[in-house]
Amino acid sequence: AQASVVANQLIPINTRLTLVMMRSEVVTPVGIPAEDIPALVSMQVNRAVPLGTTLMPDMVKGYA
């Protein structure tokens, strides 16, 4: 199954992502693919992302 990017902590709005904030997990619905984690580093989220939330393309500025 495809692993997705999941928030490893609460990520406040406009925060630049770092590796420690993200983990890969097989979840439904599928979000951003886990292999994109390196590309997500330093991108900003456009909303607060609670712990355990799957990151979707529309949550990350410049990803989609």
Rank of each mutant, 00 (worst) to 15 (best):
P38T: 09
P29M: 04
P33R: 10
N8L: 09
P33H: 10
M22H: 00
V30F: 10
T18S: 12
M22E: 02
N8H: 11
Y63S: 04
T53H: 15
K61G: 10
T53K: 14
R47I: 14
K61Y: 07
S42G: 11
D58L: 12
L19I: 12
A39L: 15
I37R: 10
L17Y: 00
A1I: 13
R47L: 11
S42L: 09
V27T: 12
V60R: 01
N8P: 02
N14F: 11
T18P: 00
P50F: 10
I13M: 14
A7N: 02
V20N: 12
M56T: 12
M21E: 02
R16I: 12
M21A: 05
T53Q: 12
A39E: 07
G62I: 04
Q44M: 14
Y63N: 04
R16Y: 14
V60N: 02
M59I: 06
Y63G: 05
E25T: 06
Q2N: 13
P33M: 10
M43D: 05
I37L: 13
A1W: 06
V30R: 03
T15N: 05
T28Q: 10
M59F: 11
V30K: 05
T53F: 08
D36G: 12
G52E: 04
T18D: 12
I32E: 01
Q9A: 11
I11H: 01
V60G: 00
V26H: 11
R16L: 14
Q2K: 06
M56E: 06
A39R: 15
I11Y: 00
E35G: 07
P12C: 05
Y63P: 04
Q2Y: 09
A34K: 07
R47T: 14
V20Y: 11
P29S: 04
G52T: 02
T53S: 13
M56S: 10
T15G: 07
P33Y: 12
N46Y: 09
G31Y: 02
A39M: 15
T15V: 10
P33A: 07
N46I: 13
T54Y: 01
A64Q: 14
N46E: 09
N46T: 15
V5Q: 01
V45E: 02
Q2D: 15
G31K: 00
D36T: 14
N14P: 00
V5E: 01
V5Y: 00
V6Q: 03
L40R: 00
S4L: 01
T53Y: 08
I11R: 00
M21F: 05
P57G: 08
V60E: 02
T28N: 11
E35Q: 12
L10Y: 15
P38R: 09
G52F: 04
K61Q: 12
S4Q: 02
T54D: 01
M43I: 04
L51G: 10
V41N: 06
R16F: 10
G31Q: 02
P29K: 08
I13K: 15
N14T: 06
V30W: 09
T28M: 10
P33G: 07
A39C: 06
I13Y: 10
S42C: 07
N14L: 10
G62M: 09
V26G: 04
R23W: 04
A3W: 05
N14S: 14
T28C: 07
I11W: 02
S24K: 08
N46K: 06
T54E: 02
M22N: 01
P29W: 03
A34R: 05
Q44N: 07
M59A: 09
G52K: 04
D36S: 13
T18V: 12
M21V: 04
M22I: 12
Q2C: 08
I32T: 01
S24N: 11
A64V: 12
M43L: 14
N14W: 08
M22K: 00
A34T: 08
A64C: 04
V6C: 04
G52P: 00
T28R: 03
L51K: 13
R23S: 10
P57A: 14
P29C: 05
P57E: 05
P12F: 06
N8I: 05
V45W: 00
Q2S: 09
A7T: 14
Q2L: 13
R23P: 02
N8T: 08
T53M: 15
A7D: 01
P29T: 06
M21P: 02
P12A: 11
K61V: 15
G31V: 02
L10C: 09
V45K: 01
P38L: 10
V41G: 02
D58W: 09
Q44V: 08
M56Y: 08
I37D: 00
M22S: 01
V30Y: 10
P50G: 12
I32K: 00
L19M: 13
A39V: 09
S4T: 04
E25N: 10
L40V: 07
A34N: 05
A39F: 13
V45G: 02
S42D: 09
I11P: 00
N8G: 13
L51D: 15
K61R: 15
I32V: 09
E25S: 05
T18Y: 04
N14R: 06
L17S: 00
L51N: 15
E35I: 09
T28H: 12
S42F: 11
N8S: 08
M21C: 03
P33N: 06
I13H: 15
V26T: 09
V60H: 01
P12R: 05
M43Q: 09
V49E: 02
L10V: 14
I37V: 11
T28S: 13
R23G: 09
G62W: 04
E35H: 07
M56Q: 11
L10W: 07
Y63T: 04
N14A: 13
P38M: 13
